[in-house]
Amino acid sequence: MSIENLTPEQQQAIEAATFRRLLQHLDERKDAQNIDLMNLAGFCRNCLAKWYKAAAEQENVEVDYDQARERVYGMPYSEWKEKHQQAATPEQLAKFEQQNSK
């Protein structure tokens, strides 16, 4: 079977598995800070949480932002921040500001 012949259910299952693998990868790479992700890819874990919340709302499922962040981070955001978030360097902040002023 080729990708062109996927049923909607197969496509959804593959996309869901891909999302779970992305979350697993980010969990394994706590050294990849959100500012790094933003500077390199234009999105971060918080963006994923916002997209998760929006997708839930489209399905009429009530998810608040903190719940979505916990799903993405694998723990409450405050805990992840305390354990894993590093202060952004002046260089990281300058690059972020430069990219977001365009």
Rank of each mutant, 00 (worst) to 15 (best):
T18I: 05
T18H: 10
F19W: 05
F19S: 08
R20W: 09
R20H: 15
R21N: 15
R21I: 07
R21T: 12
L22S: 11
L23H: 11
Q24R: 14
Q24E: 13
H25P: 01
H25R: 13
H25F: 09
D27F: 00
D27G: 14
E28G: 13
E28S: 13
R29S: 11
R29M: 07
R29Q: 15
R29P: 01
K30Y: 08
K30P: 02
K30F: 07
K30A: 11
D31N: 14
D31E: 13
D31Y: 06
D31I: 00
A32C: 11
A32R: 05
Q33P: 03
N34W: 04
N34G: 14
I35A: 08
I35C: 08
D36W: 03
L37E: 05
L37S: 05
N39S: 02
N39M: 00
L40E: 09
G42K: 07
F43L: 07
F43I: 08
F43C: 08
C44P: 02
C44F: 01
N46L: 04
N46T: 13
L48W: 06
L48K: 10
L48C: 10
A49K: 01
A49N: 03
W51M: 11
W51Y: 14
W51G: 02
W51N: 07
Y52E: 05
Y52A: 06
K53V: 02
A55K: 13
A55P: 02
A55N: 10
A56C: 15
E57H: 00
E57V: 00
E57P: 00
Q58C: 08
Q58N: 15
E59W: 00
E59I: 00
V61A: 12
V61W: 06
E62D: 10
V63T: 13
V63S: 04
V63H: 05
V63R: 09
D64C: 10
D64W: 04
D64N: 15
Y65M: 09
D66A: 15
D66F: 14
Q67V: 10
Q67L: 08
E70D: 13
R71W: 07
R71A: 14
V72H: 02
V72W: 01
Y73A: 02
Y73R: 02
M75I: 12
M75V: 13
P76M: 04
P76F: 03
P76Q: 13
Y77R: 09
Y77T: 03
Y77E: 04
Y77W: 07
S78R: 14
S78M: 06
E79K: 14
E79M: 05
W80F: 15
W80D: 02
E82K: 11
K83T: 10
K83F: 04
H84I: 00
H84E: 08
H84P: 02
Q86W: 00
Q86F: 00
A87K: 10
